[in-house]
Nucleic acid binder design. Structure first.
Lengths: 329, 329
DNA sequence: AATTGTCACTCAGATATAGAGAGTGCTAGA
DNA sequence: TCTAGCACTCTCTATATCTGAGTGACAATT
């Protein structure tokens, strides 16, 4: 364990580093603590030996290690009171009844991304939690039809397709009726399989050209799996952080953002606000991800804030706590 | 006008620069043309005076100007024959009948982005070209409903909302029936207005809590306008180009990509393949955009390739020509 | 035993200098 | 009209030097 002044030094160093992004020297701390720089240097050396601080080179100031951040988050940090202004901004959203739930979350995260200069991610409920509510096929002009799939959580996917002339509206209706009769209530990620083994053999008898219809639905269903219902807010915000001020890091993080499946690990099991510092997350060693579940009138998912490890933990945690207390039902 | 050997020199310089991204000196050209470097230097000086070439500094090799690229595209470039391999890759997509039209275009552009290392953009038909085909509201669990809007081109948007207990299924049905009766066939971008002035006054009489339903549709409709149905393929490809190997340019281009409305000018009026070099496009002076319309079984829109000004014009134009000849109906 | 003052030492970053190489413009001659 | 040659310019790279921030260690002080 660490001594109480050591804790104080660690806290000050981390907070200074969060503010400036520059290695922190002993002198800037001794001003605050009113003791000599030599004293602080001793404490710093001790903290480094324990693994809470690091040096960038032999005679540089200190930089927090992941272990240091972790200790800070677990033991030293207090969620920072929000300013009245920030609170107000968010409250106008909650009190705007004309906004639908998902739009409200979106707007909130836009504001939070703005306030913090980090990137937010919204991950909706996964396909395994969505059950089939209804399918339908609607004829359009020129032999085009649109196949629509709706889930019980209110997600909608669609696929357009060209059908051949000699398929009749009745045949289409037969197929959709059958799917609606047999598959409603099935989790989306099991639907494809059932479609293959339960529906296909049956419609093969009634419907001459069932392949096309079958494929349309099959594709619409698999869309759920690939899309996984995630999107970013303020994607370029994190790029403003000084840690990404070199071409390689910049490219690396952008490519990870585009390659969306990587961030799948954002899904959160536990109900609190969880902090994953650097290598603690599977996304990127250079970032911290703070994430939490939301559940708002049946609609649920995870929201996450992605920032540098040198993140304003106190501010972000406070924001998310406030957000949660306002949206969770 | 330019002399014939001057043309040849310009062509060689541009093609060399496209390959290497480095200023081209007279010696590398005189090897090919079998004359002395001094001769080439004279030609180069002339081409520079005419504005087709530029220097990065007083004693550097030459770099094509926008005017130079323009001349090259208009007069010197021949679309480059595709390799059999490339052709094959694209053909397997066209011959895969199980793919829906929009997916096929997607896949093609994925391949093209890969082959060229540029970024592709697909812009679907705009909201003014889409007419309302049908609206519906589907009840979900716990007073949630999903409002769905479908257009005649087969685009689908939806909005979830929580309705109050005391609104009945009949009232919802009355509203949707009314909209379907009065507004089907209306261009999407005119629907909001009609909703306000034609539908709202009427349903106000029948439906007690019409505000919620009204808002859901209103939001779903406006989604079309904001979403504008665009997406990128290989978004990070262009970042691999050496011209974006510095932090500022990198950030600038990424931010422009995110700020999607800016690229609205990608919409194309004319039917051919159009090249917009640097300042000729409104997107970014550092890039060239090559774009063309597609129309495939009623579905239409614009596809665009975004690359550095130092783009392989001959290759991209050939690819797009081939693509067009295969998809246009 | 903890704190402090002092001092030699280290390293990043800024600045200056020099040399090599690529490329040019110009001029005179073929 | 083309070419050879030459002086010149500028970038790029490498190297050296200097400065300032910061450290560790140790002896002196509280």
């Amino acid at each position: 364990m660490i001594g109480s002044r050591e804790e104080q030094v660690l806290k000050l160093i981390i907070e200074e580093y969060i503010k400036t992004a520059k290695p922190v020297g002993s002198s800037s701390i001794c001003e605050i603590l009113e003791c000599s720089s030599a004293t602080i240097r001793n404490e710093m050396a001790e903290l480094e030996k324990l693994g809470y601080l690091e040096k960038t080179h032999i005679s540089s100031g200190r930089v927090p290690s992941e272990k240091g951040y972790r200790y800070y988050v677990d033991n030293l940090m207090k969620p920072k009171d929000m300013t009245g202004e920030d609170m107000l901004k968010l409250q106008t959203i909650f009190h705007n009844n004309s906004l639908q739930t998902s739009d409200a979350i979106n707007k909130c995260l836009e504001i939070i991304s703005d306030m913090t200069n980090y990137t937010s991610v919204i991950l909706g409920s996964s396909s395994s939690e969505n059950k089939l509510r209804q399918v339908e096929i609607l004829p359009l002009e020129d032999n085009n039809v649109v196949a629509i799939v709706i889930t019980d959580k209110g997600h909608v996917e669609h696929k357009n397709l060209l059908i051949s002339e000699n398929i009749s509206i009745e045949e289409i209706k037969t197929t959709t009726d059958l799917i609606n009769k047999l598959l409603v209530g099935t989790p989306i990620d099991e639907v494809s399989e059932k479609l293959e083994f339960e529906i296909k053999p049956i419609i093969g008898k009634y419907v001459k050209q069932h392949e096309a219809i079958y494929n349309a639905f099959y594709n619409a269903f698999s869309e759920f799996a690939t899309k996984n219902n995630m999107h970013f807010v303020g994607k370029t915000n994190i790029l403003k952080q000084p840690e990404f001020n070199n071409v390689d890091k910049l490219k690396k993080i952008i490519e990870k953002f585009e390659n969306k499946d990587i961030i799948n690990n954002i899904k959160e099991e536990d109900n609190g606000i969880n902090v994953y510092i650097g290598s603690e997350n599977d996304f990127d060693d250079d970032v911290t991800i703070i994430k939490t579940k939301y559940d708002i009138g049946g609609e649920n998912g995870t929201i996450a804030i992605v920032g540098p490890k040198r993140m304003e933990y106190d501010k972000v945690v406070a924001l998310l706590e406030y957000l949660k207390s306002n949206i969770d039902t």
